[in-house]
Design a protein around this nucleic acid. Structure first.
Length: 657
RNA sequence: GGGGGCGUAGCUCAGGUGGAUAGAGCACCUGCCUUCUAAGCAGGUGGCCGCUGGUUCGAGUCCAGCCGCCCCUACCA
């Protein structure tokens, strides 16, 4: 609502600027820092002053007349050296929200498909908090896009044939002496979580390699077997990867995160995706066969393709990226180029698909397959935009992938490939100590410490979620001793998820999160539960009102512009309505900036605004009937906006807190 | 060496395309629960926005040069 009016006013001024001053300067609209300046601030006079060589104040005067009599505008003033400050007509503004209510704008639904790839955890051990940041960021971005009406396909890439899986397979085979039957039994054994078992085993294998470098032969042997798809090692690989993927999806489901398709590396190999991409790359000269130097015998992409500085920089050949190794096997980047081509429908090949799982509400999760299946899949791929949610440490690889597209003469798709990068999640020294993670003396003064999955150090996702639930449950039990235990458990889970998702979202993407357990377990201040609590409060007002014999009217029928105009003269009541009406604006801005954090920030600010209102004004006890109706409407409206924005953040609203 | 990121209150972080008196949470201090739940509200303490220069009506924001920290720079992913 807010954006529409701002745009309308800007357009009017734009016309006048063109007509009167023959200027093409773009009219921008700002929001004043101080509420007392009004709702909109237009700094156009400053820009024109330079062009016209006239005092900005004078120009502002002339332009102000243009919008003075618009019905949306209550008053305006020329402030400072030439700001045009606009005060909106409160009654009219409120009424337009009231009338629009219920007839939600369908959004700019477009046919173009957007693929968002996220999570992408190596299927060889339990998920940790770094993976949570990836999945929550990706999932929230998906929710933002869908809210706005975009068609989005969510993919979770499964690297089931890589080194990390191979290492765990080697661990079971060589260290544990497990065969397929024993691994199956281990997966089925509910007394010890399989993904946790693999977490430890992976650390043991890594340590074993350290002490016995000759054992690295196991890895090569296992990789070879997995790639060939035959023998016991390959079978172990499949068993382990599938079981771990299942565990990951279960972990993510706890946070309301799910997927449309699980593309697997095994199919990229078996269906010859790479062979097709390789042909293209060779044909179009994107890669060449290196005859000399350290990369002799490899197919490489010249550094000039993905690094501007290398173009004229002399010894750049050293920085070339190997795509096919001298032994003929393809690197991860090569496979990723093939996959990226497929996402845009440029490879000329497709996967087969089968259903991985069918969820309670009928949602289907599909997985790629190398043979046709009886179920008919929807059309996957063929996107016009692709967002890859991958941490910033891999930006070099992502650059190479995009350079591959460009070198293949797909500049549009290269442009439409976005590396949605984010910084890592590290631990504060305090948290390391608390978790018994050893840290070197010299690191104790650092603000954060990076943990190593290879060493088995870190915070497992499910452990953190469990801890959050336990903390929330203790509080819920204390506050609501009378409530049924299962219900309290559900409430605690909702609060825990709210806290976790908000925590991962409140930081902007390129800020390293120094994960602190105390901070994460806090439910006060700028947290998810604060916002949830606010929504609960708003709900309580409406519920209590009805419990005490009140009946909520159809607000549209009983409120009119005059009543609203009167009601919204009170400043913080007006500010609350205004804040509530900026939800779409916040989402739009967040998508533009690629920052889910902006949505989180907005949710918090709206909650703050409501809590302020809550303490200043008593709704149910309000004696004046017209005013009470107005306050009830405002409460209902803000509650709706809060729930709607919480939904975008993937946070549920508990019935009570 | 090259590429990328970061540096804002004691701590953790926000600061739309440059705009008015630089914000929030935590921590600390003062008040406020017989009321629609105090997981809350109001107020207070706390800032050479890393440094230096430039661009201009105006710079935390843009440019250049320094200083410091982090990540990447594999025939691992």
């Amino acid at each position: 609502m807010f954006d529409e009016i701002a745009t309308k006013i800007a357009a009017r001024i734009q016309e006048r600027v063109a007509a009167q001053f023959q200027s093409k300067v773009k009219v921008s609209i700002e929001q004043p820092k101080q509420n007392s300046f009004g709702e909109l601030a237009i700094p156009i006079a400053f820009q024109l002053a330079r062009e016209l060589k006239r005092p900005p104040r004078q120009i502002a005067q002339e332009l102000a007349g243009e919008i003075e009599h618009m019905p949306e505008v209550a008053s305006l003033e020329i402030a400072g050296n030439g700001y045009i400050n606009v005060r909106l007509a409160r009654g009219a503004y409120a009424e337009s929200i009231l009338r629009a209510d219920g007839a939600k704008s369908a959004g700019s639904a477009r046919a173009e498909k957007i693929i968002v790839e996220h999570t992408n955890i190596n299927p060889n051990k339990a998920a940790h908090i770094g993976h949570l940041r990836n999945a929550i960021l990706g999932d929230t971005f998906v929710r933002m896009l869908r809210r706005r009406g975009n068609l989005v396909e969510v993919q979770n890439y499964i690297d089931n044939t890589g080194v990390q899986v191979a290492d765990v397979v080697a661990g079971f085979h060589h260290l544990e002496k497990y065969g397929a039957a024993q691994v199956r039994a281990s997966i089925a054994d509910n007394s010890k979580r399989f993904d946790y078992l693999c977490w430890d085993l992976y650390a043991r294998v890594s340590a074993y390699y350290q002490d016995n470098p000759e054992a690295l032969e196991w890895r090569a042997e296992t990789l070879h077997a997995i790639e060939a798809g035959k023998g016991e090692l390959a079978e172990l690989g499949h068993l382990i990867a599938d079981a771990i993927v299942q565990a990951h999806l279960k972990t993510m489901a706890r946070l309301g995160i799910r997927y449309d398709l699980l593309p697997r590396e095994s199919e990229i190999l078996h269906l010859q995706f790479w062979a097709a991409a390789f042909e293209l790359l060779k044909q179009r000269g994107a890669i060449y066969f290196e005859e000399q130097g350290k990369n002799k015998g490899c197919w490489v992409m010249p550094a000039s393709a993905f690094r501007e500085s290398a173009a004229g920089g002399g010894e750049a050949a050293d920085d070339s990226k190997v795509i096919v190794r001298s032994n003929g096997t393809v690197t991860y980047v090569g496979k990723d180029i093939a996959y990226q081509l497929w996402k845009f429908g440029l490879l000329g090949k497709d996967f087969f698909y089968r259903i991985w799982s069918r969820e309670g509400d009928g949602h289907l999760v599909w997985v790629t397959s190398d043979t046709p299946d009886s179920e008919r899949p929807p059309t996957f791929g063929h996107a016009s935009r692709v967002f890859n949610v991958i941490d910033s440490r891999q930006s070099y690889l992502q650059d190479v992938v995009v350079a591959g597209l460009r070198a293949l003469h797909f500049p549009e798709q290269a442009e439409a490939s976005v590396h949605f990068s984010y910084e890592m999640v590290a631990l504060t020294p305090r948290t390391c100590v608390e978790l018994g993670i050893p840290i070197p003396e010299e690191d104790k003064t650092r603000s954060y410490i990076e943990v190593s999955g290879r060493k088995g150090l870190g915070v497992k996702a499910d452990d953190l979620i469990d801890k959050l639930i336990a903390t929330a449950l203790a509080e819920v039990e204390h506050r609501h001793p009378e409530a049924p235990p299962e219900e309290r458990r559900t409430v605690a889970e909702q609060i825990a998820v709210g806290a976790l998702r908000y925590f991962m979202l409140k930081f902007t993407r390129n800020s390293v999160i120094a994960f602190d357990l105390h901070e994460a377990l806090s439910f006060e201040g700028e947290t998810g539960p604060y916002v949830q609590y606010t929504a609960v409060r708003a709900g309580n007002i409406l519920r209590k009102f009805e419990e005490r014999g009140g009946k909520l009217p159809i607000f549209r029928d009983v409120l009119n512009a005059q009543a609203l105009e009167r009601g919204f003269q009170t400043e913080n009541i007006w500010q609350l309505l205004l804040a509530g009406s900026k939800a779409d604006s916040a989402i739009e801005r967040a998508i533009g900036a690629g920052e889910p954090a902006h949505v989180a920030k907005y949710a918090f600010q709206l909650a703050q605004s409501f809590n302020n209102f809550y303490h200043e004004h008593s709704v149910i006890a309000e004696q004046d009937a017209e005013r009470r109706t107005m306050l009830l409407w405002l409460t209902a409206y803000v509650r709706e906006q809060l729930l709607s924005i919480l939904n975008v953040l993937g946070i549920e609203q508990p019935p009570y807190m």
